[in-house]
């Protein structure tokens, strides 16, 4: 008799556990890049949940590196990254027998921002390199008002930090006078409060109070100029294996649907189809 009750208790326990786990299957965890995860993905999530209210989506944006560490540990379904995966990270996936699949999320342009009061309107790539590597230290050297330059950069765990060094600084090291801040927003804040500040942010942050973007090599960071702007890059979603079920549905919606593309454009990224069209068009004219 006693054993029988024990059995029922155990089975009911198991069934309730199974129910919990099946409910957990409806939960999608997205982790990684701050560039993607701070504004874009949360807004996409809100829009998507309107049509799929039963789904739970958790977002954690701490830098691109976290995308891969979480994917490999199985604690994320989708990883967001503002850079391509590194070789070392691929090893981790291989050793677990996992295959990483890349999806292009959107195109981004890294905007170089200066204070509103700064008369500088444009900088060449060489000047930008000089400023960020530390060989140019005063605004008068690039045609501005005299004053020593304060350089604000992202920190080393950011994908943008690496992308920028590759795109704008011919892979040279950052100068030791750079102040490393914790995200796009702090850079905007510091530049907006420091007349001699300069920093770089994703295009989504390019419009704001008391700071402005500068033209890089004569091209302003506008969506229509994506093929000519020297600091443009791709942003990625990563999954382990080809996505399935809810994750696949969400990913297709985020990267391809009209609604999602509208949000992407509204926030300041360039939706993949638009970018692809612009690049194709320029390739044809040349």
């Amino acid at each position: 008799m006693k054993i029988k009750t024990l059995k029922t208790v155990v089975t009911s326990l198991f069934s309730s556990l199974a129910m919990i786990s099946s409910a957990a299957a409806e939960k999608i965890e997205i982790k990684g890049s701050d560039t993607l995860g701070a504004k874009l993905v949360p807004q996409l999530k809100a829009e998507y949940l309107k049509t799929n209210p039963s789904l739970t989506i958790d977002i954690l944006a701490q830098g691109s590196g976290h995308a891969f560490s979480n994917l490999v540990a199985g604690t994320a379904n989708i990883g967001m990254s503002s850079r391509k995966v590194k070789d070392k990270e691929l090893d981790n996936f291989a050793s677990k027998g996992k295959k990483l699949v890349e999806h292009i999320a959107a195109y981004d342009m890294i905007a170089v921002i200066v204070n509103e009061k700064n008369p500088i309107k444009k900088l060449s790539l060489t000047q930008i390199e000089g400023i960020f590597t530390g060989s140019i230290t005063d605004w008068s050297e690039v045609g501005g008002k005299a004053g020593s330059i304060s350089v604000y950069t992202r920190n080393t765990s950011s994908g943008t930090y690496k992308s920028f060094s590759g795109l704008a600084m011919s892979k040279k090291d950052y100068g030791d006078k750079c102040q490393k801040l914790e995200g796009n927003q702090p850079i905007c804040t510091e530049v907006s409060k420091n007349e001699n500040g300069i920093g770089y942010v994703g295009l989504a942050y390019a419009d704001g109070d008391n700071y402005k973007t500068v033209k890089v090599d004569g091209v302003s960071p506008k969506i229509s100029k994506i093929s000519k702007y020297p600091l443009a890059r791709k942003l990625y979603y990563y999954t382990v294996g080809e996505p399935e079920g809810e994750v696949a549905k969400l990913l297709t919606w985020m990267t391809q649907s009209e609604e999602a593309n509208e949000i992407v454009a509204k926030i300041g990224f360039v939706p993949t189809p638009v970018a692809a069209a612009a690049i194709k068009k320029d390739a044809e004219t040349e």
């Binding site: 701490q62 830098g63 691109s64 590196g65 976290h66 560490s69 070392k88 990270e89 981790n92 920190n155 080393t156 765990s157 950011s158 102040q179 490393k180 914790e182």
Partner: peptide, 21 residues
């Protein structure tokens, strides 16, 4: 002047590095 600190560097950089490197 701005400076960096021992505590700050750990908090700022541990996120990107793979364990063991």
């Amino acid at each position: 002047e701005s400076v960096h600190t021992m505590t700050g560097i750990i908090a700022q950089e541990y996120g990107e590095v793979e364990p063991g490197v």
